[in-house]
């Protein structure tokens, strides 16, 4: 990257307990999560986390419950103070902000969407959405006009006079999304934002988020425990386990080259044809073949299988903006669909 990342997290540690500083020494000396808990009664929340979060990208942090992902996202807006480490936002050390500066930062530079929606039950959809501007002291007519724009954008036009309890879960989360968008901040933090929704609604919301992302180019940090969701949204995927980063990088890369049995187990249940894209499987262009057709690097393998009608002998040329950049062999494609061998062996054991 030429630009420095929007948010940099450096060697972040979080330990919960009465004397985190002493516990930190022990963790840095190599004590594990279980040992720390049984020896000192301290809970190791995060250990040695370093992540670069790029501007205008969706960074997804994935992990099972208890892996520290919600704790991690709360360090970005300092709802939780770290035990050790640094958080830079736009190159500025966020941990040095005093209360007023922090409040201003939260008002203007970041917004958040919550798993449990966290709407104000005594306010209408319009007032809920206008909240970030109200906090900043924007006049009523102005903030209502702005909120109305985003309410319409998330597809809730006509519901602005309703109260949250009158809406379904999916609609409530749209209000949560509208609220975050109304704040017009560069950074959007999404804490398991779609986890409480049922699958169809969740899929709709993911689509909406992707559309909004294309349109607005916000820096989004998305927390989830769902790998399908993570793969659908992520530009950069971070996998957490027991408060530590197990693997991070391009989601396609993680899928094809899991670095750890934990991740292999994770990715083995995924519909790879739908997730993997031509770009991840293609090889260098080799002119001597006759191609069955042209495909785009962002096409999914699933669409390619449909096009080849199951014929594994054909090859396609990969074309990006009219320039051929590679080729894809259906045999490679089929191999990529099978999870790595080590994992299959593990299963049989």
């Amino acid at each position: 990257m030429v630009n420095s990342p929007k948010i940099e997290i450096r060697n972040l540690y979080k330990i919960f307990g009465s004397d985190p500083k002493t516990a930190l020494e022990k963790v840095k000396a190599g004590m594990g999560k279980e040992a720390l808990l049984s020896d000192t009664g301290h809970v190791l929340g995060l250990q040695n986390i370093s992540i670069d979060i790029n501007e205008s990208a969706i960074t997804v942090v994935m992990g099972l419950s208890g892996s520290g992902k919600s704790t991690l996202i709360r360090h970005i807006n300092r709802l939780i103070e770290p035990t050790d480490g640094q958080v830079f936002i736009d190159g500025e050390d966020a941990l040095l902000l005093d209360q007023d500066e922090l409040r201003n930062k939260r008002r203007t530079d970041m917004s958040m969407v919550f798993q449990k929606f966290a709407l104000l039950p005594h306010r209408t959809v319009l007032d809920n959405s206008a909240l970030p501007l109200e906090v900043r002291g924007v006049s009523k007519s102005e903030r209502h006009a702005e909120a109305q724009v985003w309410i319409n954008r998330v597809g809730l036009g006509g519901f602005e006079k309703h109260y949250p309890y009158q809406l379904s879960g999916g609609m409530q989360q749209r209000v949560g999304l509208a609220r975050a968008l109304t704040s017009n901040s560069d950074i959007m933090l999404m804490d398991e934002a779609f986890s409480a929704l049922d699958p169809l609604i969740r899929s709709d919301m993911q689509k909406l988020l992707l559309e909004l992302h294309v349109e607005l180019k916000k820096t989004i940090v998305f927390i989830t425990h769902d790998l399908d969701e993570a793969l659908r949204l992520a530009d950069h995927l971070v996998i957490l386990k027991d408060g530590a980063v197990v693997q991070q990088g391009d989601p396609q890369g993680i899928l094809l080259n899991p670095s750890d049995p934990y991740i292999e187990a994770f990715v083995s249940d995924i519909n790879r044809a739908r997730v993997l894209r031509v770009r991840s499987v293609m090889t260098a262009l080799d002119k001597k073949f006759k191609y069955a057709g042209d495909v785009a690097p962002s096409d999914t393998l699933e669409s390619l299988i449909a096009r080849s009608e199951g014929d594994t002998s054909c090859k396609f040329r990969v074309v990006e903006e009219e320039n051929p950049i590679g080729q894809i062999d259906m045999q490679d494609l089929v191999k990529a669909l099978v999870p790595r061998v080590s994992e299959v062996e593990q299963r049989n054991l």
Partner: peptide, 15 residues
Amino acid sequence: VDQDVVEAANTFGMS
């Protein structure tokens, strides 16, 4: 008071 809502209030920088 629901702590999630209080957290949301903090997140948006309420005094």
